[in-house]
Design a protein around this nucleic acid. Sequence first.
DNA 1: TTATGTGCAAAACATTTGCAGGAGT
DNA 2: ACTCCTGCAAATGTTTTGCACATAA
Lengths: 136, 136
Amino acid sequence: MDQLPNMRLTTQRQIILEELGKVTSHPTANEVYDMVRKRLPRIGLGTIYRNLELMAESGIILKLEVGGTQKRFDATVEKHYHIRCTDCGRVDDVDIEVQEKINQIAAESCEYKILGHHIEFSGICRECSTKKPSIH
Amino acid sequence: MDQLPNMRLTTQRQIILEELGKVTSHPTANEVYDMVRKRLPRIGLGTIYRNLELMAESGIILKLEVGGTQKRFDATVEKHYHIRCTDCGRVDDVDIEVQEKINQIAAESCEYKILGHHIEFSGICRECSTKKPSIH
DNA sequence: TTATGTGCAAAACATTTGCAGGAGT
DNA sequence: ACTCCTGCAAATGTTTTGCACATAA
């Protein structure tokens, strides 16, 4: 739960953070790898994973535990919700007011100590709704 | 999107469904495998995955895309929310009223065609809050 | 100088798939 | 009979890890 451990400022970390900050999408580790590799061709995928994980623990970035097979990362740490396209899997922000009161409602009907919540919407993004339906 | 395809009623399918119905937890495919294997020792893990997937597609059961590394399954298809213990990973139901109106709120601020939403709470379950803190 | 971080490759998991034989209908 | 389904094992995809070398402080 510590904030910033003695974390060295390496070139790799700077560039990972820069590249993540450039996009409004919510890239997977592999997508971050591809972005970073254009500037640091010899970086290893392990380094990407290790650092995204560390940064998420430090609260510098957000690790999204949304549906689908891969975790996604977000440079924006302010609270907001997400929507995932059930067709292509892309994830976007949903900018509605965050409902803090919902935690209290939940607290009354379960025995957990509530820490927070996340709402994941599902739907069809604009690209997918305009393109011809694919055969699944 | 079809409801019930020409799905044969095999022993494996009956028992998977029975065992899933017995528990209120939200077992992973591997946990279902362990439960079913006590009655059908020669069943393969592939069969578990194939059938859970098929049943989820048919709407007989629910496939939970909650955080964590594994998918979980639920015999209760009625809409409800979930809470996940950030310490041990167990998942329980949260029985609060399902907020359908939240879909409309979201529809106004994003370009997706909204299909639904799921709220995943996070917290500490009773077992974990009473046991001594583990070293991470 | 020295603890931390990196690249690389292998390992560890979760899940999917190909195929030959088996079982519902 | 004729599909569809199963067990098995191998393949796939994602994430983690061990280790020798590199580098920030």
